[in-house]
Amino acid sequence: MVKKIYFQSIFFSFFFIKEALAAESGGMPQLNPEFWVSQIFWLILTFGIMYLVLSKLILPKISNNLESRKSQILENIEAAEKQREDSDAKLKEYDEIISKSKLEANSIFNQAREKALKDIGAKREVLDKQIDNEIAEAEKEIDALRKNAPDKINKIAIETSSELLQKLIGAEVNNSSISAIVDDLSKRNGDKYYGN
C-alpha cells in the first residue's frame, strides 16, 4: 500500500514538473550573443596570461626539478655501484692476501724442513767421515801390526830357539843360521798362521 502511494506520487509529480518547466523555458542562454564579445575577451586575456606564466616560469621549473631528481637518483645508483665494486675488489684483495700468506707459511715450513734435513745430512756426513777416518787409521794400525808381527815372531822365535839351544847344548849357536831356519819355516808355514 505504501509502495503504491510512493510510486503514484512519483508518477503524478512528473506532470507538475513538466508544466513548471514549460512555463519557464526561454531557450539556451548560450545562444544569446549579448556577452559573446566579453567572454572572448576574458577568455583570451586569462588564458593568454596563464599560458605565458606557465610556459615561461612554472613549467621550466617543474621540468628542471624532474631532471635534477632523475640525475641525482642516477648518480646515487652509480655511486652505490661503485662502492659495491670497491668492496668486491677489497674482498678479492683480502682473499689474495690470505692465500698468499698461506703459501708463504707453507714455503717457510718447507724451507725449515729442508734446512733441518740438510743439517742432519751434513752432520751425518761429517760423522761418517770421522768414523771412516778412524776406521782407516785403525785398519792401518792393524795392518802395520800385522806386517810387523812375523818379524817380531821370527825374532822371538830366533831368540827363544838360540836360548833353548844354548841351554840344551850349552854352546853358542850362531844366530844367523837359526834365523835362516826360522825364515824358511815361517815362509813355509806363514800362511797357515796368519791367514792371508
Binding site: 556577452f35 566579453s38 567572454q39 576574458w42 577568455l43 586569462t46 588564458f47
Partner: peptide, 15 residues
C-alpha cells in the same frame, strides 16, 4: 561590451 561577468570571474578563478 567587455564587461566583467560571472563567466569572467570563473575564468579568472580557474587560471
Amino acid at each position: 561590451d567587455i564587461s566583467f561577468t560571472n563567466a569572467s570571474l570563473f575564468m579568472i578563478l580557474s587560471t
